[in-house]
């Protein structure tokens, strides 16, 4: 038990360090191969560890938009019932449906950074005739997604690296990437890999949280990406914040489930840790003594806390 605890705290602090390195400073840091491999190892260790946690009811910061809510409800009337608030689902629906080509039978969509696979599973239920493939660097996540969610031939998950996609050229009609790109040490390489695996005229739709520095870098890389043209760059923070605020409400399902996952006093601590991981600072949660304590504890080592203060959507088209 003690060894496990030590392992947990080491994994967390290495993760925080790697995330800090990737997201601070607005110049392309041009890590060498070894540095990139080490950063990825540190980041993936946390995702591997959390992949099997059963109490996860939110898989991204969420999106709250009435039009999207109704559009989903027409297809899946109970999508936000029981154990989910539906905001994670809405973000996925939004990202896919910003792509102006039509979700047609037989189209093949790739998600880079699919994590637990829940988002793609949801989209696959909305579009049963579309083929979806999820890719993630966390082998544990992929194994678990394949075991619990994969549904051949329409939905499968593959282990691999966003910066070196294990697919032949021109295989996909569309690529989506939801809250994953902030983990990539070499964002430019990811863009050129996506461009390679897209069919001409295919689309890349990315939603992610950014620090000020990282946004400057990502936005300029997107605008100068070879073979791809930017169709939309949009600040979607109002709709993300709406969802985050609802989750941060003391009576929310999000807070209740993360609190009840563990016995006192771990429960309330986990609740605050989850709040910090899912955008508490983005919406500026009112003074909460336990939250501030958890925040202090988790920033002690890296000293400066990363500020993810913007949330953007990008749509790119692969030139024909």
């Amino acid at each position: 038990m003690k060894a496990q605890k030590q392992n947990l705290s080491q994994v967390f602090s290495e993760f925080a360090g790697a995330l800090h390195s990737v997201n601070s400073g607005c110049v392309d840091k041009a890590y060498d191969d070894e540095e990139r491999a080490e950063l990825k190892r540190q980041l993936i260790a946390l995702y591997d560890l959390t992949a099997t946690w059963k109490n996860v009811r939110a898989w991204n910061w969420g999106f709250d938009d009435e039009a999207i809510h109704h559009a989903i409800q027409e297809k899946l009337p109970h999508y936000n019932a029981a154990d989910t608030d539906g905001f994670s689902e809405q973000l996925y629906y939004f990202v896919l449906h910003q792509i102006p080509t039509y979700i047609q039978a037989g189209q093949h969509v790739l998600e880079v950074g699919c994590g637990s696979g829940a988002g793609l599973n949801f989209l696959s239920r909305c579009h049963q005739e579309t083929k979806f493939t999820g890719l993630d660097l966390s082998k544990v996540s992929i194994d678990s997604a394949n075991r619990r969610l994969s549904r051949p031939p329409g939905l499968k998950y593959i282990h691999g690296d966003a910066e070196s996609l294990p697919f032949p050229d021109g295989q996909f009609d569309a690529v989506i990437c939801v809250e994953s790109a902030h983990n990539y040490p070499d964002f430019g390489r990811f863009l050129s890999e996506v461009c390679r695996v897209l069919k001409p005229g295919g689309y890349l739709s990315i939603a992610d949280l950014y620090t000020c520095d990282r946004f400057e870098l990502a936005s300029s890389l997107i605008k100068s990406a070879k073979g791809m043209s930017l169709v939309v760059e949009a600040d979607i923070s109002p709709w993300v914040k709406k969802a985050v605020r609802k989750r941060m409400d003391p009576g929310s399902l999000f807070r209740r489930t993360s609190r009840e996952a563990f016995r006192f006093p771990i429960g309330p601590l986990n609740e605050r840790a989850q709040m910090l991981a899912y955008g508490a600072e983005f919406v500026g949660v009112e003074d909460d003594f336990i939250l501030n304590t958890v925040k202090r504890l988790t920033t002690r080592k890296s000293k400066t806390r990363l500020v993810f203060d913007r949330y953007h959507h990008h749509l790119l088209c692969r030139e024909g």
Binding site: D65, A67, Q98, P200, V231, A234, P238, W239, C317
Partner: peptide
């Protein structure tokens, strides 16, 4: 306001005609 309303209000929704469809 929904995302779509906002885009329409900004007058940028036109930008989202798929380029390859426009070409064809």
């Amino acid at each position: 306001m929904t995302y779509k309303d906002q885009r329409v209000a900004e007058g940028v929704e036109d930008a989202v005609v798929p380029p390859e469809m426009l070409k064809r």
